[in-house]
Nucleic acid binder design. Structure first.
Length: 598
DNA sequence: AGGCGGTACTG
DNA sequence: CAGTACC
DNA sequence: GCCT
């Protein structure tokens, strides 16, 4: 019963990323290769646009007469040939099974035409063709939707590959658009009053085929598990990502590859692998087949191929080769020194150094101060910090802050807040409802903790992020905020040791935020890296905002956007403020434990 | 074909 | 300015 | 490496 679709390429034009994803998931015969597509679909309505898209795809064609006496008659002939440029909004809303059957019969003929027609003809159709076909569970004739029809030229029409849909083997009618359909409707994102409602509720394309498609699937082929709504976005900040996802072991392999790319200096590769890792980390099913992977945002053929290799061999070529590559092992050792990044690690290697002793012996004086500290405490900094110790450290910091003024509040952020059993360092955000209190506290606090011998070294101190808010030109203040408080988000990165028990030295970051942006501060310091990047990207692309942990600004005029207070007044506490930031960004609230993007 | 986070300290 | 840091 |  399910329609036997031709190979389809879907144009991204005029589609939101999540719309695109959703549609793609419903096309079992999807291809991204223009040469292999029989039908190209797009949210477009004019033949000129169709030609433009073909050029963009670098697909050379020569036009084929639309109504010609071609063998395409079958397509051209049946039912009213409405003007191709017309909106085919007709979608007959059939309900009677009667209608359905007759429709289906016709459809079948058209199917054969589409599939069997001369191999190098490509049709550009309006998107509605797919929606209507899915809705009616039948492959509709193309003519009502036809924008352009051409014959591919000069292409190596090596059609040998016919991956997805073999020729019309009419026998098993039960092909499955399986994965296609069971995909749930559009997510119920929290729509914010003003902005998105009108478009979001636009009736979607939710045609959700009324189909029943009982899983005949008979033989092999278990249908792929549905992609959750939230995986139809490329922004990891729009979906829950838990600490221990079902595919953690494969993710670990991808992380290993990511590290190798990092050490080799492949920044873009690092970003790419981070994206796919974050996507897989949000996928709630144990993977069964490579095919599942390509449906996920940020995951493509390469990742699917790696998965296959990994299931077969237990690891991938890249990591296997790396194991016996002493250079990479050494680079990793150097990279793990605090204050040494990938570039410096490679420099050290190039000088002929192979371990920490070499650095100490031959290069000590060339190291920066913080690198020396990093080498000195190398082993201790590798140790994980259990949650209770993090709490102890944090409470000391808070106590010292409250000695200055009892009104200080604190949130432990970082991996602790995400719920991890142990952390690589300790991060705390301190704030105070009275903005005057947060102004220059950082230096007093650090010196107080130094005097009490908790802080043994300071690695860097950001005193004043301050003047940014008042810089005359850079941000032509329009919103002109709250008279006195300039934005200050001060931060100290220090080395900590408990003076009593003399345990291992620990890395501790202390962040001071003014109350009016404390929500941004804890939001900005709680998610994993990919979550933070995607949050910023989301703010930029979707909201026109510039997010950072010291606040949100409009990209239009640079004015500060206050998402944390309103007529409701300032937030009563930092977590509440953080929730308001999510709301103001039109994002669903994510508990910190769901920001584990890997 | 171009983009991929945003910011601040260090040297 | 390039490198590193933070998440 | 994937998305737009």
């Amino acid at each position: 019963m399910a329609p036997e679709l031709p190979r389809i390429l879907l144009l991204p034009t005029h589609l939101q990323a999540d719309e695109l994803r959703e549609l793609e998931a419903r096309i079992p015969t999807l291809t991204h290769n223009a040469h292999e597509a029989k039908v190209i679909l797009g949210k477009i309505s004019r033949p000129e646009r169709a030609l433009f898209e073909l050029r963009r795809l670098k697909l050379a064609t020569e036009p084929v007469a639309l109504e010609g006496a071609e063998g395409d008659e079958a397509i051209g002939d049946k039912r009213g040939r409405s003007d191709a440029a017309e909106v085919p909004s007709k979608r007959p809303r059939l309900s009677g099974s009667e209608a359905l059957r007759s429709r289906a019969d016709e459809g079948h003929v058209a199917t054969l035409d589409l599939l069997g027609g001369s191999g190098d003809v490509v049709l550009v159709l309006k998107l509605a063709w797919l929606l209507d076909s899915l809705e009616q569970n039948v492959v509709l004739p193309a003519d009502d939707y036809l924008l352009y029809q051409g014959r591919k030229i000069s292409s190596h029409s090596a059609q040998a590959s016919n991956p997805g849909t073999p020729q019309p083997r009419k026998e098993d009618e039960t092909t499955r658009s399986a994965s296609a359909v069971n995909d749930s409707p559009y997510s119920k994102r929290t729509t914010r009053p003003g902005t998105s409602s009108s478009t979001a509720s636009d009736g979607r394309l939710h045609s959700e085929p009324p189909t029943l498609h009982r899983e005949t699937t008979s033989e092999h082929e278990v249908p792929l598990p549905p992609i959750p709504d939230f995986l139809h976005t490329t922004y990891s900040c729009q979906r829950p990502s838990l600490v221990s996802p079902p595919n953690a072991t494969f993710i670990a392999e991808l992380k290993a590859i990511r590290t190798l790319r990092l050490l080799r200096g492949d920044q873009v590769g690092v970003r790419a692998y981070s994206t796919s890792i974050a996507s897989l980390a949000a996928y709630p099913h144990l993977l069964q087949r490579p095919q599942e992977i390509e449906r996920l945002p940020g995951c493509g053929p390469k990742i699917a191929q790696l998965y296959q290799q990994w299931t077969e061999d237990g690891c991938t070529d890249e990591t296997r080769k790396a194991k016996t590559d002493t250079e990479l092992v050494v680079l990793k050792t150097f990279y793990d020194i605090w204050g040494v990044g990938d570039t410096t690690a490679r420099q050290f290697f190039k000088k002929g150094w192979r371990d920490l002793d070499d650095i100490v012996e031959y290069g000590w004086d060339s190291l920066s101060r913080v690198q020396q500290i990093g080498v000195k405490y190398y082993d201790e900094f590798q140790l994980k910090i259990p949650r209770d110790e993090t709490e102890t450290i944090a409470s000391v910091i808070l106590a010292h802050a409250r000695r200055v003024d009892p009104g200080f509040q604190m949130v432990i952020v970082g991996s602790y807040r995400r719920g991890k059993p142990s952390s690589g360092d300790v991060d705390v955000v301190l704030s105070h409802p009275d903005e005057a209190q947060t102004l220059d506290i950082i230096e007093r606090l650090v010196s107080s903790l130094e005097k009490s011998n908790f802080i043994t070294h300071t690695l860097s101190v950001w005193t004043k992020n301050s003047e940014r808010g008042q810089a005359p030109l850079a941000w032509k203040g329009e919103g002109r905020r709250a008279g006195s408080g300039f934005d200050t988000l001060d931060k100290a990165m220090v080395v900590w040791q408990n003076p009593q028990d003399k345990g291992p030295h620990r890395r501790v970051d202390i962040i001071i935020s003014p109350w009016k942006t404390a929500g941004c501060a804890i939001l900005g310091w709680s998610g994993e890296t990919t979550f933070q990047r995607d949050l910023r990207r989301y703010c930029k692309v979707k909201m026109g905002f510039k997010f950072d942990s010291s606040g949100v600004r409009s990209r239009a005029d640079g004015s500060w956007v206050d998402l944390e207070s309103s007529e409701r007044g300032p937030a009563p506490d930092m977590e509440t403020a953080e929730r308001r930031v999510f709301e103001g960004l039109d994002l669903e609230w994510r508990p910190p434990a769901e920001r584990c993007t890997g």
